[in-house]
């Protein structure tokens, strides 16, 4: 199992047990597509009923999606809570494509979980 997938599973676990994130993600059901730019890895995180319901290997398109692209190592650190995602975006280390409100909500999740 890759380190990126392990970090995504850790992220899933943190999200699903946090009450603050539950409130934040109420009625918010996007698909998060995580794509590594230096490996072939692509994962889709389905958010349903205030929880990450599953992590699917590969890309599952959706009308409401947020796409996060970057090197696997950076993505791993972002989803492990070791790197502040706002700073990673600012430094051009990761790119986040989607609605501005979704991007802020995603950033807010990291703030609630890790206080980063």
């Amino acid at each position: 199992m890759s380190e990126l997938l392990l970090s995504l599973q850790s992220f899933q676990s943190e999200v699903n047990k946090n009450d603050g994130v539950k409130k934040l993600t109420k009625n918010w059901n996007p698909r998060m597509i995580i794509q590594s730019s230096n490996s072939e890895e692509v994962y889709t995180l389905a958010i349903q009923e205030s929880a990450i319901s599953e992590i699917i290997a590969g890309e599952v398109a959706s009308a409401h999606e947020i796409r996060i692209e970057g090197d696997a190592e950076i993505l791993r650190d972002v989803f492990n809570g070791k790197t502040n995602p706002a700073e990673a975006v600012l430094n051009g280390e990761i790119a986040v494509y989607g609605e501005q409100s979704d991007q802020i909500k995603l950033d807010a999740i990291s703030l609630v979980i890790w206080g980063l």
């Binding site: 109420k26 502040n84 409100s101 802020i104 909500k105 807010a108 703030l111 609630v112």
Partner: peptide
């Protein structure tokens, strides 16, 4: 969010995500 301004400026509404 980078930490260059007081935390108040990074406050987020949990209900609205704004």
């Amino acid at each position: 969010r980078e930490g260059h301004l007081p935390p108040f400026a990074a406050k987020i509404s949990l209900k609205y995500g704004s």
